[in-house]
Write a protein that binds this DNA or RNA. Structure first.
Lengths: 254, 254
DNA sequence: CGGGTCCTTGAGTTTGCTCAAGTATCGTGG
DNA sequence: CCACGATACTTGAGCAAACTCAAGGACCCG
């Protein structure tokens, strides 16, 4: 972990991710206050932990580049991945409840994050209703994400899970103005398999099957969607009721 | 849905559940304010919905008696149950993010709840840091619950899931001073099966297997734990790392 | 070029699902 | 109070999905 710039001068106004990050919905003056609360930008190297289970909550992190995986583990070392956090995503809200983190967050690559100290953030929350609301919204998104994953793990078969996942990436990319039908997965198969609740071999076979069916093209982590309607067909079959897809946290590499 | 008492006079101070409910951790004067915010007590009949997906958030509900199941559904009618809420539990926080509920809440039995209008609650939140924190804690518990279920669905086999579930009920009962080794499940098999991500038949077989092994005794919804160590053995194998079990939402009937 | 990690594929097995029938329990109305 | 129907639960048999084990290939980095 390397501290890149101390104290002032993080400029959300100049950050291309601000529309998806904490500043979303804040007024200019509120934003300035928030910027002051951001103490520094930090680099985490690949495999480094941003925080671990039971660590006291220090900060909320905004991913600037790279990728972070969040997971919970069993005593035996079994690991369930809960989500992947990509540029523009915020993480660390899991500790808002008890002041301690309830999951592990590990960098998948060298990762740059903005660090917002919770103490500062808390003070601002007392002052600005908008920020308070924004925090709530973030925690709500966390819950929503979990619900979708639960629906996936509990009700879908493996092929549908993968299709749903690919669709969610594609949709996220669309939101951000990235390619809808071609992207690199930021995570190795083993983590994706854990996230989707299946064995690595099964995941690999499902990729192969989708490819054999002419729906996607797979080359290692590069995915090209060839028949997006078919993919939606596989996924949509068991996609959540409410029509309009909300912003999904899980994603691409540009 | 029947409104039982209008406007004032819900008395948290006299309620036996207050230690587990919203008042937890509030000072006396704060509590009085909260009591004023509680508009009324409502009865929902069996199968009635407290709220449905996409409904605007009206209130937070505290279960006084009965039981509520919360779930999300797929377009095809597949239903994933996310949790069961029992006396002392609070629900409705899923809508804090977008102002609309993102899941369905249905009464499993005739159910009495205290209704706290969010408008009032929001005002109080601006005023009292404690209450704000308490709200955060509730949302955090929601997240924690989801994480545990994800770990269960993603990493455990059916027998372990059931064992883990039974253990969590037993522990919750201990916390509330109820019987640790004998309780009635408040939900039918079909809902429990959905919650645990398995077919009803599989759930039934697992109950039978645990009974055959002399670990529990099953008579419809009455469960008697005969060998709690063995049950822990089956569950603990894949129980979450952090040792001390937090309050779990999911439970018994006295 | 060599070693390690990551990914894929095959073969065989097992878990859990589906379909189907049978039993128990409960509420309702005769 | 009993009979009836509906709902809830259990059990069996056969099958399919997904897992495990094992080996081989691709890619990356030093």
């Amino acid at each position: 972990m390397t501290i890149l710039n101390k104290k002032p001068r993080v400029e959300c106004g100049n950050c291309s991710l601000s529309a998806f990050c904490l500043p979303q919905g804040l007024t200019k003056s509120e934003l300035e206050q928030v910027e002051l609360a951001i103490e520094r930008t930090i680099k985490f190297s690949k495999k480094e932990y941003l925080f671990r289970c039971n660590d006291p909550q220090r900060a909320i992190y905004a991913v600037k580049s790279g990728a972070v995986k969040v997971s919970v583990s069993t005593v035996e070392g079994g690991e369930q991945i809960l989500g992947f956090y990509l540029p523009g995503d915020l993480l660390g809200f899991d500790a808002m409840a008890r002041g301690e983190h309830i999951c592990d967050a590990q960098a998948l690559d060298d990762t740059l994050v903005c660090e917002m100290k919770v103490d500062n953030l808390d003070k601002l929350c007392a002052e600005f209703a908008t920020l308070r609301q924004q925090m709530m919204r973030q925690m709500g998104q966390e819950i929503e994400r979990d619900h979708k994953l639960l629906l996936s793990l509990g009700q879908m078969r493996t092929e549908e899970r993968l299709a749903t996942f690919l669709v969610s990436i594609s949709e996220r990319n669309k939101l951000r103005g990235f390619a809808v039908c071609e992207f690199n997965l930021p995570m190795p198969r083993i983590y994706l398999a854990s996230y989707l609740g299946m064995a690595v071999e099964t995941l690999s076979r499902m990729f192969s099957r989708l490819q054999a069916d002419g729906i996607i093209k797979v080359k290692q982590r590069l995915i090209i969607i060839e028949d997006i309607d078919a993919l939606y067909g596989l996924a949509h079959r068991n996609c959540q009721k409410e029509a309009e897809a909300g912003a999904e946290t899980i994603n691409f590499t540009p």
